[in-house]
Design a protein around this nucleic acid. Structure first.
Length: 215
DNA sequence: TCAATTTGACCCAA
DNA sequence: TTGGGTCAAATTGA
């Protein structure tokens, strides 16, 4: 269970440092949001078989479940911003609303000094929940540590994905601790459910720089 | 012009 | 038969 932050289009999951090419999108039964399929851009050059699936959660549009399949065999010029297991399901939470409320920009936390994480070795499929939040301090060290520990838990066994209150169960460390102070889902609910003209002006400000295709 | 994205069709396993 | 995953032609944008 990891918290991370990023800037840019919050309609999409964050850049993890690799370059991905979308090759498909499917409506998934029982899910409000379609699932997108990506493969490594360098597949053709290096035969890199890395893939990932990205799907927004029904109950929290700012949470993405990202499932990584395969290892990157390509030589990318960029450094992975998120060090993830070779095969993992990652829940990525972003809450631009809360970030706006807190008056802080979302900044993608960098990986910890290219420290080769043990979990990048080939491992059996596992799930890692990464929370991309919102305003709490996220140091590279805490991110890397959280990733490593989070790799031992699955999304199914990591409840409170939206509230992030129980992220400590997966060893979220500082991220989980701080997350308690910024309940993403609650803030989002307030923003979306408060209604009235006041909220709309807030939302306009929040999403002014975001892709609003959904509207 | 080329690379990335979109999207309908196809394949295959359950 | 259905749903998930992939393919590939068309479209879009730099």
């Amino acid at each position: 269970m990891v918290a991370a932050q990023w800037t840019g289009n919050t309609e999409q999951p964050p850049d993890d440092g690799y370059t991905w090419r979308k090759y498909g999108q499917k409506d998934i039964l029982g899910s409000r949001y379609p699932r997108s399929y990506y493969r490594c851009t360098h597949k053709n050059y290096y035969g890199c078989e890395a893939k990932k699936k990205v799907q927004r959660l029904d109950d929290d549009p700012f949470t993405y479940e990202v499932t990584y399949c395969g290892n990157h065999t390509c030589l990318t010029s960029t450094t992975p911003l998120l060090t993830l297991p070779a095969a993992a399901a990652t829940s990525v939470t972003n809450s631009p609303t809360a970030a706006a409320v807190l008056g802080q920009d979302l900044v993608m936390a960098p990986a910890a000094d290219q420290q080769p994480p043990q979990h990048q070795q080939a491992q059996p499929p596992l799930s890692t929940s990464i929370h991309l939040g919102i305003g709490w301090p996220m140091t590279p060290a805490s991110l890397a540590g959280a990733v490593g520990e989070g790799s031992t838990s699955t999304t199914a066994t990591a409840p409170q994905v939206t509230t992030m209150g129980a992220t400590a169960a997966g060893g979220g460390g500082a991220a989980a601790r701080d997350a308690d102070h910024y309940p993403v889902a609650d803030l989002a609910d307030v923003m979306f459910n408060s209604g009235g003209s006041g909220s709309s002006s807030i939302m306009d400000g929040i999403f002014s720089s975001h892709d609003r295709r959904d509207n």
